[in-house]
């Protein structure tokens, strides 16, 4: 199985290779797209959780930073960025 965004190491840029749109609600999917999270886009996971929780995940998309939950990040497949 391809690596997913929820387990991607922090601080390393990755490219979104596939998003499982069917696994999420329509609203979730739309908000992801509004945040600019789509196939082919480069993102960098920055911060993950606090104290006892692995939720949520902050990542940078372009010049923007967004927060999503690990559950959504698990629906996003990522690949290393092209060298």
């Amino acid at each position: 199985m391809n690596p997913r965004l929820d387990s991607a190491p922090l601080g390393v840029a990755v490219r979104i290779s596939r998003i499982d749109w069917d696994a999420m609600s329509q609203d979730e999917g739309r908000r992801l797209r509004e945040f600019g999270l789509m196939e082919g886009i480069e993102v960098t996971p920055l911060h993950r959780g606090s104290l006892f929780s692995r939720d949520p995940l902050a990542l940078s998309v372009g010049r923007m930073q967004v927060i999503i939950r690990a559950r959504q990040a698990a629906m996003i497949e990522v690949a290393p960025t092209a060298p």
Binding site: E28, Q65, I67
Partner: peptide, 10 residues
């Protein structure tokens, strides 16, 4: 309901 989502711009 389903688990609440949390999507926010920082």
């Amino acid at each position: 309901g389903t688990a609440a989502g949390f999507m926010m711009e920082m």
